[in-house]
Design a protein around this nucleic acid. Structure first.
Length: 490
RNA sequence: GGUGUCGUGGCCGAGUGGUCAGGCAGCGGUCUGCAAAACCGCGUACAGCGGUUCGAAUCCGCUCGACACCUCCA
């Protein structure tokens, strides 16, 4: 079952063969959301990208421990020295306990993820639940000599670290240049150098979220939680760390520095980063305030949306682009995704009904090979989808009697199609869930279609069309095929 | 300014140095009472200018343009 998977490693800027440290186990860590607002389209990208990674690794036989954190503390609005904790700010504005904010948006995030058919991770640790681990890590960094305290806050000595190791190897930056650029600003705060980052911040009196520590009543620095929690659950060195490209610097760069300082070695083998979703060519993001939330997509309630788009349409839209490319949002593109998805799912239904014949003109094995090749090549989902559309054409041709398939190839085609469409890419038919079809409905529909067939036999087109049009008003579409009428919800 | 990524036909979006991406839209046809669906056929697209090569959208150089990161952001 093992497949020759390759993936693009941000660290080496090359595609590399994937070889886990402790096969068959794989450790996967992905930066999750900061829960102080509703998830938007941008949040769907890493969730879906790494859902594909998670699903595929499992499919090819690995036992994956997938850790995706919830950030609920420590990220500040501005820089290290000013600004308010985001969660704390929201709590103050809404007069709620910070943990109420966290719980509220975490619940909503989970619901959105479920709608997108994103599988829950194996472990979903909260930063606030791992203060002890983070303090422990700061102690280790102190012991190694890369931390210093000032006024109750603790900072990472990037300049010193860079002399011994290499700060900037992930993002391709040189710390000397950063120092050059920021020299004019230096000395305005507690840090020795502007490039240093906080490991622990002493809380100001108005700061709501704070914990005791050896240095002060305060809260952990921004980059610490992922290193601490990743290493706690996946080990001091683990296989894959993922997240959005915008996290490469400084977040992931600093994560590496912390791990190297604390443990003496890099904690991550493969760094994977998904690209951004853009809107009018610009990154969709919280700070630009140009985001559309997932709920707004699902309900169509946003000025820029011409209609509602279902969760699986959003999933299809995202997977139709490679994860390292930007994707530009537009109604036109989403509508194209919706129609393409409908056609793919309709073919899945048709496939169920196909009958094998003695003759065969279909090479199911080759399709299967091509699909695996595409995923193995750095999770190239758009290529997989292209191959699946080739299968759609074949399925429809068989259904039309223009191609034929024998029992063996039919079994193989069904297995491949279902594996890739549903298990790996994670699409699903949304009508099914909504309909919850029962015997009564089926019986009624068969009766109605029978009556319409009678009308047609009598050339009573008016009656036949009235039935069809009325059903359409109930969002039921009737299609006349060679084998008689079929219906589906629209 | 520094570090990167990228510019593909109406829209979205893959791509290897040498017949093909794929989806959506469009046009023509088959089928159908009509419609829908489905199928078949149809588009000499690779930012610009040079260079390497027998041959480049694919390699190199330059120009132009876009985006991302360098503050929190998925």
């Amino acid at each position: 079952m093992k497949q020759p998977l390759t993936l693009y490693n941000t660290l080496t800027r090359k595609k590399e063969k994937f070889e886990p440290i402790h096969p068959p186990h794989v450790g996967l860590y992905v930066c999750g959301p900061t829960v102080y607002g509703d998830a938007h389209l941008g949040h769907a990208r890493p969730a879906i990208t790494f859902d594909l990674v998670f699903r595929y690794l499992q499919h090819i036989g690995y036992k994956v421990r997938y850790v995706r954190n919830i950030t609920d503390v420590g990220h500040l609005e501005n820089d290290a020295d000013e600004g308010e904790d985001k969660v704390g700010k929201k709590a103050r504005l809404e007069q709620l306990e910070p943990m109420e904010i966290v719980q509220f948006y975490t619940n909503r995030y989970h619901k959105n993820m479920e709608q997108l058919n994103v599988l829950p991770p194996s472990i979903e640790p909260h930063a606030s639940g791992h203060i002890i681990e983070q303090i422990d890590m700061i102690n280790k960094i102190f012991e190694a000599g890369y931390a210093y305290e000032n006024q109750g806050s603790v900072y990472f000595d990037v300049k010193k670290y860079d002399r011994d190791h290499n700060y900037g190897k992930l993002s391709g930056r040189s710390i000397d240049e950063a120092l050059e650029n920021t020299r004019a600003l230096a000395g305005q705060d507690e840090k020795k150098n502007q490039v240093d980052f906080a490991l622990w911040k002493k809380a100001t009196p108005q700061h709501i979220m704070h914990w005791p520590s050896p240095w002060s009543e305060g809260f952990p620095g921004w980059h610490l939680e992922c290193t601490a929690m990743g290493c706690k659950y996946l080990g001091q060195t683990f296989d894959i760390h993922g997240g959005g490209m915008d996290l490469v610097f400084p977040h992931h760069e600093s994560e590496i520095a912390q791990a190297v300082a604390a443990f003496g070695n890099d904690h991550v083998r493969y760094w994977m980063h998904n690209n951004m979703i853009t809107i009018d060519g610009q990154k969709m993001g919280k700070s630009l305030n140009n985001f559309i939330t997932l709920d707004e997509f699902f309900t169509g309630t946003h000025a820029l949306l011409h209609q509602a788009y279902s969760p699986i349409t959003i999933r299809f839209f995202i997977l139709q682009a490679h994860y390292r490319s930007t994707v530009d949002f537009s109604n036109e593109a989403l509508l194209a995704a919706q129609k393409g998805l409908d056609r793919l799912l309709a073919a899945a239904e048709t496939l169920k009904k196909l009958k094998p014949s003695d003759k065969n003109t279909v090479d199911a094995a080759s399709l299967r090979e091509k699909c695996y090749e595409a995923v193995n090549d750095d999770f190239n989902s758009p290529i997989v989808i292209a191959h699946l559309f080739e299968a759609v054409r074949i399925i429809n041709c068989i259904n039309d009697g223009k191609e034929s398939i024998d029992a063996e190839n039919l079994e193989s085609l069904k297995a491949t199609f279902n594996t890739f469409v549903f298990d790996i890419l994670g699409f699903k038919s949304e009508a099914d869930a909504a309909a919850a079809d029962d015997h009564t409905t089926d019986g009624l529909m068969n009766l109605v279609l029978d009556l319409r067939q009678n009308a047609k036999n009598n050339k009573d087109w008016a009656a036949a069309d009235k039935i069809r049009d009325s059903l359409k008003g109930l969002n039921i579409e009737v299609k006349d095929t060679k084998e008689g009428a079929v219906w589906c919800r629209i």
